[in-house]
Amino acid sequence: MKLLFIGDSITRCGRHEDPEGIGSGYVRLIHDYYKTNRPTENYEFINRGVGGDRIIDLNARWEQDVIQINPDMLSISIGINDVWRQLDSRDQKQIYPEEFEHIYVKLLNRVREKTKAEIVLMEPTVIEEDIEAEGNQKLKSYVKIIHKLSDQFEATLVPTHQAFLTFLKAKADYKLTRDGVHMNSAGNMLMATTWLNNVNVNDINLKIRGSRREVLNDMKG
């Protein structure tokens, strides 16, 4: 079973320095969980996170990094840079919610048309560890779009943004990021546990096996 994770630097998280190409972030924690809890399963984890990526950058590499890989499960985490660039690079062409949704729909349509992948949509996390920060206010529209698309495409939703807000509301004296955006080990753990609590890879695997049996039965018939 081939599991593909795609997104920005939060997903990338050292994958180029890792001999396994998985990195040291939330993808690594998910990988290690399944490798130790399902040792007999043949899970292949692929990380295609690229630092600085926005939805338009995913669009530019979608054929090579998703369609050609043809995963059984595709997990997407995008949206932070679409908002962050509005704060730190105001002279750059911006991707506002309407265009973000338009491109995201196009990408998901291609997945449905070209692959049989089960889709997992992750909410963007946070910009600054402050609920009232401008970045987190702007993220609300993007989070709503991802909820809408999860319904439209019958995808599994991972409420990562909500998990971070819940933590921030608790006012714990502990940081989740190194700079307000990029995760420290605790932030990666929160992302991974939120993913694991909402995605059942075993169910997806059983579904895939059932589909393959149906194909083989049709061929025999």
Rank of each mutant, 00 (worst) to 15 (best):
F164I: 07
T125A: 15
T125I: 13
A155C: 02
K144F: 01
A133F: 09
I146G: 08
L157V: 03
V126L: 07
H147V: 03
T160C: 14
L157F: 14
S141M: 03
I146Y: 07
D130E: 13
L139E: 08
A163E: 01
F164V: 15
I131N: 06
K148Q: 15
Q162A: 12
A155H: 09
P124L: 00
M122F: 06
P159Y: 09
K140C: 06
A133E: 02
Q152I: 04
E118H: 10
E134H: 00
H161M: 12
S150Q: 08
P124S: 06
V126H: 01
T156V: 12
E128H: 13
H147N: 14
I131G: 10
T160A: 15
N136W: 08
I145L: 12
K138M: 14
A117F: 10
E154H: 14
A163S: 03
Q152A: 12
K148A: 12
N136T: 04
E154Y: 11
L157W: 13
E128V: 11
H161P: 08
H161N: 15
A117I: 04
F164Q: 07
S150R: 14
L157G: 06
M122S: 11
A163W: 02
L121Y: 08
N136I: 07
M122K: 03
K148S: 14
I146K: 07
T125E: 14
L157T: 02
I127H: 02
Q137K: 13
Q152S: 13
V158T: 04
N136G: 10
L121C: 07
D130H: 07
F153A: 10
Y142L: 01
A155S: 04
L139R: 01
V143F: 08
E128K: 11
A117N: 02
K148G: 09
E129R: 09
K144N: 05
P124C: 02
L139Y: 09
V158A: 09
K140Q: 15
Q152H: 13
K148H: 12
K148C: 10
L139W: 14
L121P: 11
G135Y: 11
T125P: 05
Y142G: 05
I127T: 00
F164L: 13
L157S: 08
V120W: 07
D151A: 09
A163L: 08
P159K: 01
V120G: 08
G135S: 04
K116T: 01
K144W: 01
N136R: 03
E129D: 06
F164K: 04
A155D: 02
K140Y: 12
I119Q: 11
A133L: 03
P124K: 02
E132R: 11
E118Y: 03
V158G: 10
Q162W: 06
A155F: 06
V158F: 07
K138G: 08
I146N: 14
I127E: 05
E132G: 04
P159V: 11
V120H: 07
I127G: 01
I131T: 04
